[in-house]
Write a protein that binds this DNA or RNA. Structure first.
Lengths: 212, 212
DNA sequence: TGTACATCAGTGAACGCGCGTTCACTGATGTAC
DNA sequence: TGTACATCAGTGAACGCGCGTTCACTGATGTAC
């Protein structure tokens, strides 16, 4: 975990100026996670956090949306890796594995609420005039959705679910997203604590016997 | 539906200066709906839209969050009224009524996406230092939740659902919220078109025979 | 009925701020000869 | 091995902009006498 270095920076050695690109995105992510407010991100605030002057950013990004795009790409990778790790590290069969993936999803949203919001429709959204289309971004979440779909497929193969994995993965994800988003957005969450645990078996069409 | 009057305003008659309060909130709502971007709302932009000078706002609101609060209160009332109208105007028994309420909810989010986002955790969120606590706002949605809960209760009473209305209304709402929010946020929606219709019977624990 | 005055519903100019963006520049370091 | 030069990784000052907020004001209209 990177420290919040407002301290003086030593410039990168020759030929390695590209490193600053990573540092800029890292600074943006720090600001996002720490302030919990996408409005706190500006070219100048990111530059301050990265310990560089504002104009230095232009050598690496054309504008703020370009930085946000890079941040979003990385965050989607993080999410995917988190879900994959949960799948691979959970023993006990398809249903515990499915539950572990769902729990990991919700934990990701709770640990990095503003990042989660940025991924799924927070303040930043791709501009139609830029090089990134909405279609591109719609594709981004699909890898994570596929993990859910695979988990469902395993449950069906083991005769523990009546789901149509392709379709019901969407339902499961949208349900998780509702919970995750609401938790990410308000600290007060009046719904029952175990509400996700109640929704998951329904949306996954788990057979009564299959529930833990 | 109010027209977008940037035209010259005639001042309110004596003793009726309070009317401007309504006009300010109306202007803010227009901007929100038309731009689809909460960032477009500033004291100055709202004043421009309302056809007044920026300082005139201070006679009616202390700051921008105060305007947003009023807007949110109204929008929650709108939503509640929309759901209630759907309940009352739908014949055919508890299940069609439940479906009508859910459809009305999703339509509200689709018709006024940025307003929906503002209600449920868009850019604007209550400040902890202000007079409005998060607890207050958490209470706001409860009237709409109650309508869902009542619809579930009717289904259970008619032996068409196995839900625990109090609890499962939360699950149903969070599922609807996931769909509504995702649709409000991105014009590209790769999930099956009928995904909500698939989720609702599950989350409402409708008995197989009860589904239309 | 006339008139002085208080009140009300706003306005217009001005301020300091952070922002995105431009421009000319600096100074360390590798490279050609 | 020495030196001139090109390149690279940035910097600092300056611009115009929209913003929130303040201040002193204006001009119509109701009210007291």
């Amino acid at each position: 975990m990177a420290t919040s270095s407002t301290a003086a920076r030593t410039r990168n050695p020759r030929g390695e100026g590209g490193r600053l690109r990573d540092e800029i995105v890292g600074a943006a992510q720090q600001l996002l996670d720490e302030t919990g407010d996408a409005r706190a991100l500006s070219l100048r605030s990111i530059a301050r956090r990265a310990g560089i002057s504002a104009p230095s950013i232009y050598a690496h990004f054309t504008d703020l949306p370009a930085i946000m795009l890079e941040l979003v790409l990385r965050a989607f990778d993080d999410l995917e890796e988190t879900l994959r790790a949960a799948t691979e590290s959970t023993p006990g069969g398809p249903v515990p594995r499915l539950n572990a993936v769902c729990a990991a999803y919700l934990r990701f949203a709770q640990d990095y609420p503003e990042r989660y919001r940025t991924l799924f429709g927070g303040q930043w959204r791709p501009t139609t005039d830029g090089s990134v289309t909405e279609q591109d971004l719609a594709t981004l979440g699909l890898a994570s959705l596929q993990i859910l779909s695979d988990a469902l497929t395993d449950c069906v193969a083991a005769d523990l679910s009546d789901a149509d994995p392709e379709t019901d993965a969407w339902g499961l994800w949208l349900g998780l997203h509702g919970v995750a988003h609401q938790k990410a957005v308000s600290r007060v969450f009046p719904a029952p604590d175990d509400i996700a645990d109640r929704m998951i078996p329904m949306l996954a069409r788990l057979r009564p016997a299959a529930a833990d």
